[in-house]
């Protein structure tokens, strides 16, 4: 069972349906026990970083998500959920993140239109189980801030939007995708499938 963590940030229907289409059971939940028992967990999210951390705290989910990551089971942050994995964010003031990956979230440099919205091409940087057997292609982004991983090895794939933008990050069992794999056509579904295969 895959836990789609519900903390009141954005629509989880599409993520949950995409997981089901790939043949996995998806449960949208904010229950700590259900999350802890899941074979894999997905932290989605649309909105502002500070609000998201406040919501996670109010739901008592900060420690459960961190515990989940240290359990070694696969955890995937999507869009804002990916940014939350990092140490801190500069979105409307400085906010602490989950600190599962060292690094900071900063505003896009503004050379292109903000938000960065639409289909952009991935460049893979290093081998990873989530990229295995896949070819670089286009995925769908909607975001105004970007993560700057401290460790180059945590950057698995990036895209070019007048600057390098982290697109897929990962370390051990913790992964993040800045784009929406559930809205990114065949390549998005393949990336999600690779992640889900890690939960077996």
């Amino acid at each position: 069972m895959i836990a789609i963590i519900d903390y009141g940030m954005g629509n989880l229907h599409s993520v949950s349906k995409a997981v089901e289409r790939l043949g996995y059971e998806a449960v949208v939940t904010s229950d700590k026990g259900t999350i802890a028992a899941a074979d894999g967990a997905i932290l989605p999210g649309v909105g502002a970083f500070g609000d998201a951390m406040d919501n996670l705290r109010a739901a008592g989910l900060v420690e459960p998500v961190k515990d989940y990551a240290s359990s070694g089971k696969p955890l995937l942050g999507i869009c804002l959920g990916m940014q939350l994995l990092f140490s801190e964010s500069e979105e409307h003031g400085l906010h602490q993140g989950l600190d599962l990956l060292p690094g900071r979230v900063v505003r896009l440099n503004g050379q292109g239109k903000i938000p960065h919205m639409g289909w952009n091409r991935l460049t893979f940087h290093q081998p990873s189980p989530v990229l295995e057997g896949l070819e670089e292609g286009h995925v769908y982004f909607v975001h105004s801030f970007k993560a700057l991983p401290e460790e180059p090895r945590d950057l698995l794939a990036s895209t070019d939007y007048h600057e390098q933008v982290a697109a897929i990050v990962g370390r051990d069992n913790v992964y993040g995708m800045q784009f929406h794999p559930e809205k990114s056509g065949a390549l998005g579904m393949q990336l999600l499938r690779r992640f889900l295969e890690l939960t077996k």
């Binding site: 229907h13 349906k17 289409r21 769908y140 929406h180 559930e182 056509g185 579904m189």
Partner: peptide, 11 residues
């Protein structure tokens, strides 16, 4: 809309 969201992989 609900049915479509469950069927497609694009926005």
């Amino acid at each position: 809309v609900r049915q479509t969201a469950g069927e497609i992989t694009i926005p």
